[in-house]
């Protein structure tokens, strides 16, 4: 942390800031942040997408504002200012969702307001936007937000298929499908999250092994 303060901020616009959030530093599957909405509202694909997009909106907007004000905000009150900014955009998004669909608002319930305390957002404001240029902060927010949405969708789809036998509200099975009640309840969120983490870590390990094998054979070292 102390080192970061003295580092020169990166000024060049880098697409890597966008891509890292999608996969390498995915907020859910790698950083394991913001678990509350991840486990609670992913009981259907639509809910997952709506929650993901709402979070992305807040993330991008707060990153933009924090980054553009980063030279003005005294560091003693920075957290208070960030929270103020984040809470504002959460309130905005809550009204917008209500205007778009009352049913969606009902399904997401209190979790829209709880975006305020999603640590991904404050985390990005503090760790990235407060030290980087506006363009890079925008890309970082967008990447992290979409990565978050992707993760929520991964959970939402699995839980909706098993829990209600549908995908985005479209029935997949003939009448008389036995729904797995646990999958719609928060408990199912834990199971699905665990399964996805297992899968992604297995994938990563396999890639690492392959790369190691490639570099070994490439350099001719036994």
């Amino acid at each position: 942390m102390a080192n970061d303060l003295f580092k020169m901020p990166e000024t060049a616009v880098s697409t890597d800031e966008f891509i890292k959030g999608l996969w390498r530093e995915n907020p859910v599957f790698v950083q394991v942040l913001g678990m509350c909405p991840v486990l609670a509202v992913t009981n259907s694909g639509i809910n997952a997408i709506a929650m993901g997009l709402a979070t992305t909106f807040v993330l991008v907007m707060s990153n933009i504002l924090v980054s553009s004000l980063r030279k003005v905000i005294p560091k003693q009150v920075r957290i208070a200012t960030y929270i103020l900014i984040i809470a504002t955009f959460v309130t905005v998004v809550e009204y917008l969702i209500q205007a778009i669909s009352l049913d969606l608002h009902k399904a997401l319930g209190a979790f829209i307001s709880l975006i305020v305390v999603n640590c991904v957002i404050l985390g990005r404001a503090e760790a990235f936007a407060s030290k980087n240029t506006l363009a890079n902060s925008f890309l970082d927010g967008l990447g992290m937000g979409l990565g978050f949405t992707f993760a929520l969708l991964c959970l939402g789809v699995v839980r909706e298929i098993l829990g209600s036998g549908t995908i985005f509200g479209i029935g997949l099975f003939p009448d008389g499908f036995q729904s797995w009640v646990v999958m719609i309840l928060p408990g199912g969120g834990f199971f699905t999250m665990g399964a996805w983490l297992l899968f992604f870590n297995w994938l990563k390990e396999r890639n690492k092994k392959r790369e190691a094998a490639l570099s070994e054979s490439g350099t001719g070292v036994k």
Binding site: P74, Q76, A80, A87
Partner: peptide, 21 residues
């Protein structure tokens, strides 16, 4: 300096919320 920042951001945020509402 701190007061100015908080007040400024506060006013901006409340305007934004009222406008959306």
């Amino acid at each position: 300096h701190m007061l100015r920042t908080l007040a400024g951001v506060g006013i901006f945020c409340s305007l934004l919320i009222v406008a959306t509402y």
